[in-house]
């Protein structure tokens, strides 16, 4: 659980870094270059991508199984239970499932058309298409809003997830406070970073 979570957190940094290049005012030149490299590099496509997918599947399958086991550990429920712990730490399954639903939409939006372009319709590789495809997607306000809400929940998921995964693998900083601080910085940067990209492309036409 923790190891797959940490793996995904590293991936998110890379994903965000590439997305941020779409903000560079060069008409999408840098973004297109990197996207094209990612899309046609065999190592990325046939080794890293499957590993990432396995990581995601492992993580949410284990997450759901963990929730099932933990519910079984208290078969008779409290009538009144009010504990001193944060809302997000108690609702990781909720934020996780929202992220999962978001992933389904995200795949439908970008991954499915990509697969179709490259492997089904077998169209000619075009290095300059990615930036326009991205902008087109975000001209839809419903999609932009759904993405932004998902980023907030992803941020919350990561806020607890980062601190929790470190604790689970026995790694710590000098104090719990410092660990919380790192988790806050990471999760807020991720949530704001992705949101800025989405909102930027919504308004940039």
């Amino acid at each position: 659980m923790a190891l797959s979570g940490i793996f995904l957190m590293v991936f998110l940094v890379q994903h965000l870094a590439i997305n941020l290049t779409s903000l560079i005012p060069d008409n999408g030149y840098t973004f297109n270059k990197i996207s094209h490299f990612m899309g046609y590099n065999p190592v990325v496509q046939f080794i890293l991508q499957p590993i990432l997918m396995l990581g995601v599947c492992f993580h949410f399958t284990m997450g759901i199984f963990l929730e099932y086991q933990n519910r079984r550990a208290r078969k008779s429920k409290y009538v009144f239970h009010k504990t001193r712990s944060s809302w997000i730490s108690k609702n990781m399954i909720l934020s996780g499932l929202v992220v999962l639903a978001f992933l389904a939409l995200h795949f439908y939006d970008f991954w499915v058309p990509e697969m179709d372009y490259k492997y089904v319709s077998k169209l000619i590789p075009a290095e300059d298409r990615y930036y326009h495809e991205l902008q087109e997607k975000f001209h839809n306000s419903t999609r932009t809003v759904i993405y932004c809400i998902s980023f907030v929940l992803l941020g919350l998921h990561l806020n607890h997830g980062l601190a929790s995964s470190f604790q689970s693998v026995g790694v710590t900083t000098s104090s719990q406070k410092k660990l919380k601080l790192i988790a806050n910085i990471y999760s807020i940067s991720i949530a704001i970073g992705f949101t800025v990209v989405a909102v930027f492309h919504y308004f940039s036409h």
Binding site: R74, T83, S168
Partner: peptide, 26 residues
């Protein structure tokens, strides 16, 4: 059940046993 590091245990423990003990256990 399994620990998901919500921290409720430490906050309710009458003897103030710290979460660091879970870290050490891991």
């Amino acid at each position: 059940g399994n620990c998901t590091n919500t921290g409720a245990c430490e906050a309710h423990c009458p003897k103030g046993i710290s979460l660091d003990n879970i870290l050490n256990l891991n």
